[in-house]
Simulated assay, not measured.
Amino acid sequence: MISAEDNSVHYFSEGNPQYTYKNRRFYLIVTIKSNCSQWYGEYTCSVRLKTPNPTTWTSKPVYITNKTSPKLIELKYDRNLNLQALVNGSDFQYECIATGIPKPNITWTKYGDKSFVSVGPMLHFPSITKADDGQYFCTADNGVGWAPRDGGTYIRVRRYKPTMKYISNPIETATENDLISFYYTCILEVEVHGCPHPTVSWWKENEDGRKKIIKDGIMMGHDFRIYDGVEQDCYSGNIDDTGKTYHSLIWNYFNKTDLGTYVAKAESITGIAELKFIFRVEAD
């Protein structure tokens, strides 16, 4: 309670008054420093006559607070991310933090796209894509004033998780005669997308799991040959051709020991993709 009974004055640690109380003949003045938040709250003024039968008058309550214009404090996001090379399909959140009394309303806009408006401090892309590339601005407003939009943040999707598709048939069927033919050759081929370029390896499934196929390099006789396509700059290419390369596994002189299930595996720092091939034999 602020009262005239003790004529007290509360001070800051550096000696400046937090509030002052002045009693005039027909009115009272209470001055509260605007930066002293501990005195914010609801106030009423009560007047009591010093008579044998005192009467008291009480004013309507007034809430005192200090209104301040908004101020942008921080743009918050996962600092492990590169805003210029976000991963396609990932969950991306970007938070605009501002202060002000009353609490400011925050709005996000996108440069060159008048239809884009996101209300609230969090700019959220649950599955960001190339279409979301652009420069985004944060603005804070609370009716007292407004914080000019920040300098803008440019975000770009430039990394893509590996994807694969079949070029050759996923199921190949050979006959008994094929398996004894000296010239029978088999080819598995896949098309791989991804940025950065995925590493592609070939595996054969067995009872113990998988065994990696190593390029033999033998020019005659039974052998495996692995071909990897030429890599181009995946960061500047068309979205439909991003990091596209072709990879193949070739057998010379395919035989019965080669029947079974094969796996093409593409992996990078953004993820892993796999495709399976089956080789089987049927009677002539």
Rank of each mutant, 00 (worst) to 15 (best):
residue 254 F to Y: 03
residue 263 V to W: 01
residue 135 Q to S: 14
residue 102 P to T: 08
residue 181 S to V: 01
residue 1 M to L: 11
residue 203 W to E: 11
residue 212 K to G: 08
residue 115 S to D: 15
residue 183 Y to N: 10
residue 82 N to H: 11
residue 139 T to I: 14
residue 75 L to V: 10
residue 265 K to D: 12
residue 84 Q to E: 12
residue 216 D to I: 02
residue 88 N to I: 00
residue 64 I to E: 00
residue 148 P to C: 02
residue 150 D to I: 00
residue 235 Y to I: 01
residue 154 Y to P: 09
residue 169 N to M: 08
residue 66 N to F: 06
residue 105 N to C: 07
residue 241 D to A: 12
residue 239 I to A: 13
residue 188 L to N: 02
residue 51 T to Y: 07
residue 99 T to R: 08
residue 133 D to N: 15
residue 221 G to P: 05
residue 170 P to Q: 12
residue 98 A to I: 06
residue 73 I to P: 06
residue 17 P to G: 06
residue 175 T to Y: 06
residue 186 C to H: 00
residue 180 I to A: 00
residue 185 T to A: 05
residue 223 D to K: 04
residue 135 Q to W: 07
residue 89 G to T: 10
residue 266 A to H: 00
residue 118 S to T: 07
residue 92 F to P: 03
residue 70 P to S: 10
residue 88 N to Q: 12
residue 261 T to G: 08
residue 89 G to Q: 12
residue 249 L to K: 00
residue 183 Y to F: 10
residue 125 F to A: 05
residue 259 L to I: 07
residue 41 G to Q: 02
residue 88 N to W: 03
residue 269 I to H: 08
residue 208 D to Y: 04
residue 154 Y to W: 09
residue 73 I to W: 03
residue 31 T to A: 10
residue 198 P to K: 04
residue 110 K to G: 05
residue 119 V to A: 09
residue 284 D to E: 15
residue 47 V to M: 09
residue 264 A to P: 05
residue 44 T to G: 05
residue 128 I to V: 02
residue 234 C to S: 05
residue 21 Y to T: 07
residue 213 I to F: 06
residue 56 T to H: 04
residue 18 Q to Y: 06
residue 265 K to P: 02
residue 139 T to W: 09
residue 218 I to Q: 11
residue 93 Q to E: 15
residue 162 P to V: 02
residue 67 K to Y: 13
residue 205 E to Y: 12
residue 146 W to Q: 14
residue 38 Q to E: 12
residue 259 L to P: 03
residue 275 L to G: 03
residue 52 P to C: 05
residue 171 I to P: 00
residue 127 S to R: 15
residue 257 T to D: 14
residue 163 T to K: 08
residue 104 P to E: 04
residue 223 D to S: 15
residue 231 E to W: 14
residue 152 G to P: 08
residue 128 I to T: 01
residue 218 I to T: 11
residue 74 E to K: 13
residue 35 N to M: 08
residue 194 G to P: 06
residue 279 F to N: 00
residue 188 L to M: 12
residue 33 K to I: 06
residue 265 K to C: 13
residue 156 R to N: 15
residue 50 K to G: 07
residue 122 M to P: 01
residue 184 Y to A: 00
residue 238 N to L: 07
residue 180 I to N: 00
residue 267 E to N: 03
residue 28 L to E: 13
residue 105 N to D: 14
residue 209 G to L: 00
residue 171 I to V: 11
residue 228 D to M: 10
residue 284 D to L: 10
residue 54 P to V: 07
residue 172 E to M: 09
residue 17 P to I: 05
residue 46 S to V: 07
residue 231 E to M: 15
residue 268 S to L: 03
residue 74 E to L: 11
residue 279 F to Q: 00
residue 87 V to I: 14
residue 25 R to L: 13
residue 25 R to G: 12
residue 90 S to D: 14
residue 59 S to F: 01
residue 30 V to N: 05
residue 143 G to K: 11
residue 151 G to Y: 03
residue 12 F to N: 15
residue 59 S to E: 04
residue 129 T to G: 10
